[in-house]
Nucleic acid binder design. Structure first.
Lengths: 201, 201
DNA sequence: ATACTTACGACTAACTTACGAGTATTTAGT
DNA sequence: ACTAAATACTCGTAAGTTAGTCGTAAGTAT
């Protein structure tokens, strides 16, 4: 059932996975076309058809469903997640130009997840040190008590989230540090929730 | 029944959840409209209708009830995994009678995963200390280079796995410690691969 | 009265699918 | 080594489908 893949087909599959990981959804035919330097959508369609026929690719949702290509599941123990940039207290998140990636356990690989690297020792009140990595689930909302990455008036921080009636409290993990109170005049935005932190071996 | 979500639909859902968490009630159509920069209530209604139809959104209370949108599908950031017992170098894994469990990130929750607690300082060559937890994926095989939990002649260990032609090398992470060579007369069995280690806060 | 929800019709942009006709590249047979 | 045949890949275009958009007006609860 699983015919062997030609080199180009492998590239095709790789692109879909990379795109899904980076942008949170699978690419459209047109995006594949320009990424792979085809000059026709027909070519893209030919790949999709034959890869689905041979069991390497799936479509989630019926025919005509958009951006719905997924790789048929292989489950390696680990895979890569994009490293989006650096986070340091008191500044916006510093983005990385060229897409690096970091090896993480496969169960953490999800289109909405990404990795940030900690810069400086400013997060030490969260038990997170210079050079550590955090795995973040991209979302605009969080449950009370979760650790979040947030932007307050343009400054990045990493705190625990405790919404109250008309304000929001952000607690550091270390009780020696102050609790931050956000009110409605502040520009506050949740970027994601922290799933895990780890250190390079 | 649960159609996959488009990116915009995901944003829509996120907004509702965030608003509910921040202000204690779900947003009105008009609030959604301005938050999402639509210029018509019809658009909001279209989203609500289709999201409810596809089972992603609920309305608490009958039709025409105000500010009554709730997400059906919450994706909690964490859930529990069974704590199977203790692992200490040089002895079999010590099982726990009564099933405890440990809170871990949801993406790591999988029927084949379990947690072990490290006992003693004997694993320190893997940068893992007394009291740390490891999340293990139960499996009989591993990729070269992965960290595995294995039983050698009845003794548990935690090492990196490097299969060779006719023997297997197990490397500790700390180069000061010796490499272990397994040959065919040894009783060697892989119990699982280590997905992650963490420490209780 | 005020603050909301619901319904409708028409429209557009984004995207997938189908088709017909090719050109390269690999494989198999003599 | 030469040739036939299959396979892999490419092109352009047109038609079809779906997600998302708009504005307005009428209905419903407090």
């Amino acid at each position: 059932m699983q015919k062997p893949l030609s080199t180009k087909q492998q590239q095709f599959l790789d692109l879909i996975q990379r795109h899904a990981l980076t942008y949170g959804q699978s690419p459209s035919y047109a995006e594949i076309m320009s990424a792979l330097r085809f000059s026709s959508l027909g070519t893209v369609n030919w790949y999709v058809k034959t890869l689905i026929k041979n069991g390497h690719l799936n479509r989630t949702g019926g025919p005509n469903s958009k951006r719905a290509l997924t790789l048929t599941e292989k489950h390696p123990a680990s895979a890569r997640l994009p490293l989006l940039g650096f986070i340091a207290a008191g500044t916006p998140i510093e983005a990385l130009e060229n897409a690096e990636s970091v090896e993480v356990p496969a169960p953490l690989v999800h289109p909405d997840n990404f990795v940030l690297k900690i810069k400086g020792n400013s997060m030490i009140d969260d038990h997170i040190e210079d050079g550590d990595y955090i795995i973040v689930r991209k979302t605009q909302s969080a449950e009370p008590g979760q650790s979040i990455v947030a932007l307050i008036n343009g400054e990045a921080t990493l705190k625990r989230y405790y919404p109250q009636n008309h304000k929001i409290e952000l607690h550091p993990r270390n009780p020696d540090y102050p609790i931050i109170h956000i009110n409605e005049t502040d520009d506050f935005q949740i970027n994601g929730i922290v799933l895990y932190s780890f250190r390079e071996y």
